[in-house]
């Protein structure tokens, strides 16, 4: 299943903006005195289903400065596929999860189309 090239372009442009934003955020932190980093490792259950979606999500998380995927747990029984994400600014767990959910929503819109993507984000991953 090949995603719509237009949607791939939209997602790529958004991701490039995120990479610049993350790099500048880290840059602004490290060139000023004092360090606000407080790393965290969070588990992120995914709405993604296919291998393509999961690996694209893992790579997108890694390429954004400030977050990196440490491990991918495949679907086992009832638990959804889960990513373990190391976040550099993880003092607020909810904020990290919210940003990753936004990335996942955009990714699913790219692979499944707007309506199906938004719909699958409505329910909790299972």
């Amino acid at each position: 299943m090949i995603p719509n090239p237009l949607r791939v372009g939209v997602y790529g442009a958004w991701l490039a903006g995120e990479v610049i934003r993350g790099a500048l955020r880290i840059g602004a932190d490290v060139v000023t005195p004092g360090l606000r980093m407080s790393p965290a490792i969070v588990a992120l259950p995914l709405h993604c289903e296919t291998d393509l979606e999961i690996s694209t999500m893992a790579s997108s998380i890694t390429i954004t400065p400030g977050t990196i995927t440490l491990g991918i747990a495949p679907r086992t029984g009832d638990s959804p596929p889960t990513l373990y994400v190391h976040a550099l600014y993880g003092a607020d767990r909810e904020e990290v999860i919210t940003e990753l959910r936004d990335m996942e929503r955009r990714l699913l819109v790219m692979t499944r189309g707007r309506q199906a993507g938004e719909r699958s984000m409505q329910e909790e991953p299972s």
Binding site: T64, T67, L88
Partner: peptide, 10 residues
């Protein structure tokens, strides 16, 4: 390892 992606991605 985390901050390296700023160099390689941009």
């Amino acid at each position: 390892i985390n901050v390296l992606s700023g160099a390689t991605g941009m």
